[in-house]
């Protein structure tokens, strides 16, 4: 499955994931105390510079964020009209800043490393029944299932089109879901069997 990770090695890649996440959290709290869009602009400029320092993948990433930028600007314009332009400006800049910084962390940190950093943080949840290693298994299953499900959906669509010229789509969804659920039983059985063997 495609991930958002940019594979070129940059200076941001070399920073440890825990440091990047820690900085992200600290900055997100710090900017709550900064008021006025003029004061926030330098931070936004710095964030943009960091994105551009990634080179062409950085520009590519900015283009991918277009949808979100459009949404933020639309909300900003709405806010400018119904409240005040100053407030709108500072709100827009805050969101842009945090989204850019968070996105930087995402594209410079492989999923494995993120998982490695987050999993130990979840050990306090063990008494509630959340075992960290099961989380890693769950994530792997999700990543595995996504292309499987898409392939299954395509296969069903093709099979249906081969048999009939009509396309009452909702009916397909029912058999799709039913088949997917049956698959989970098979997979669960084989997983349990494997766990039992390895014990």
């Amino acid at each position: 499955m495609i991930s958002l990770y940019i594979s070129e090695r940059t200076w941001l890649h070399r920073l440890p994931a825990s440091f990047k996440l820690g900085m992200l959290v600290s900055i997100s709290i710090a900017i709550l105390f900064i008021d006025g869009w003029r004061n926030l602009l330098p931070a936004l400029a710095a964030a943009l510079c960091m994105v551009l320092s990634l080179g062409r993948p950085g520009l590519q990433r900015l283009r991918n964020l277009r949808g979100l930028l459009l949404l933020v600007f639309t909300l900003g314009v709405f806010q400018g009209f119904v409240m005040s332009w100053d407030l709108a400006a500072s709100a827009v800049i805050r969101i842009l800043l945090m989204v850019l910084l968070a996105d930087l962390v995402t594209v410079t940190t492989p999923m494995q490393k993120m998982l490695a950093v987050i999993t130990p943080l979840l050990t306090p949840l063990k008494p509630l029944g959340v075992a960290p290693h099961r989380l890693a298994l769950a994530v792997a299953l999700v990543i595995r299932f996504v292309p499987l499900l898409m392939a299954q959906w395509q296969a069903q669509r093709l099979a249906y089109r081969a048999r009939s010229a009509r396309r009452p789509r909702p009916v397909l969804l029912v058999s799709f879901l039913a088949q997917a659920l049956r698959r989970t039983d098979q997979i669960a059985d084989s997983l349990s069997a494997r766990q039992a063997r390895s014990r």
Binding site: M1, L4, S28, L68, I118
Partner: peptide
């Protein structure tokens, strides 16, 4: 929760190909 976790880790599976930590700082 698992889905959101996978999104947070960097999978672009939020509609529109969005993903990563950025979406958790956005307006939605």
């Amino acid at each position: 929760l698992l889905f959101l976790f996978v999104v947070a880790m960097g999978a672009p599976v939020l509609s529109g190909g969005r993903g990563g930590l950025g979406v958790f700082f956005g307006p939605t």
